[in-house]
Design a protein around this nucleic acid. Structure first.
Lengths: 170, 170
DNA sequence: GGGAGATTGTAGGACGTCCTAGGAATGGCG
DNA sequence: CGCCATTCCTAGGACGTCCTACAATCTCCC
């Protein structure tokens, strides 16, 4: 006996308990949480054979895009929108794996530069190829839906203070 | 000096590095992850004064909806789509807080029933009221966008194997 | 110079999630 | 009747996230 959609069921409960004005918002929040969970699982499964998690992959990816193959810890945190201590622990693991090394900037010795090693550079390219093939090129919606959904998520981000380009939707 | 939208920037990098077919999918995944993070932060901020997290709130909410005010651990896990061990640790904390108690079902002594206490029942109603007022009734999109976004997230869930009602969109 | 205040990063702790392993209770099958 | 596969739950560990300190370093201004 298969259960019904838990989110649709929760929405019905919300209405029958006298919270109709909040029911759609509840369903939206719950749907986004669940969609993120499913996408995250696919991404993690793809990265696992490479010994990476998404958090660590994102750091390698940013470093590989940068000119110097290195970046201050604080800049990683602000670009990835995570707490500084999360960056510290992720970079510590990447350093243990030999994918990144820490350098202290001479002109300002407070700054720690996370710098990609040759091994890190090779790994991030292989991992990116797999992610593109196994997740990003077929995320589970058709091209129109992908564009619409991305635009709606951007609008949501914008109302929460994120800097967002292109909400108007050309 | 404000940075540009990190997701739009990543999408541009994807295209210029020769991965145009994956760029939109990457942007979608990243947008969903970020939107979830923002909504999750608002929800957690609302629940914190009540001494709850979203994970524990969801358990209390399900129990309060159920007839007996109780439910097997395994059912909580399947409804919430989380690992059984996550349920164990959340219920353990709720028990410490005096919001839930564990009962063993007599007819099948393998089953542990998580059962709402009077304190838990009161708390979940107060927490729900705050969530409805502070998050769910104004999730950050207008009514049309909320409906569209929920429908797209449902389609995404459906392609990943979730049981989903109402994808067709009346 | 030299101290006050900012900025940058790390340490330690709480919590949630997953995984693997394993202990109890049930139910079926020889 | 008794053994075993299944089901249900918990224990312990890895990882990511946040928070509150705190240490090191830089900057500014007296």
């Amino acid at each position: 006996m298969t259960d019904r959609d838990p989110i649709a069921a929760a929405r019905a409960q919300w209405i029958s308990h006298g919270w109709p004005d909040a029911a759609d918002g509840m369903a939206l929040v719950t749907s986004v949480v669940r969609a993120q969970q499913l996408l995250h699982e696919r991404v993690e499964a793809t990265l696992r054979p490479h010994g990476l998690t998404f958090a660590r992959y994102e750091i390698l990816r940013l470093l590989a895009f940068s000119r110097q193959r290195s970046m201050p810890m604080s800049r990683l945190g602000s670009l990835l929108q995570v707490h500084a201590t999360s960056v510290t622990s992720a970079v510590a693991r990447l350093e243990t794996q030999g994918l990144v090394e820490r350098l202290r900037r001479e002109s300002d010795r407070r700054v720690v530069l996370a710098s990609l090693t040759a091994a890190g550079e090779e790994l991030v390219e292989r991992a990116t190829r797999d992610l593109n093939e196994q997740v990003f090129s077929s995320p589970g919606l058709d091209a129109t839906q992908v564009r619409d959904a991305t635009r709606l998520m951007s609008a949501l981000r914008a109302t929460h203070g994120d800097v967002v380009d292109d909400v108007t939707g050309a």
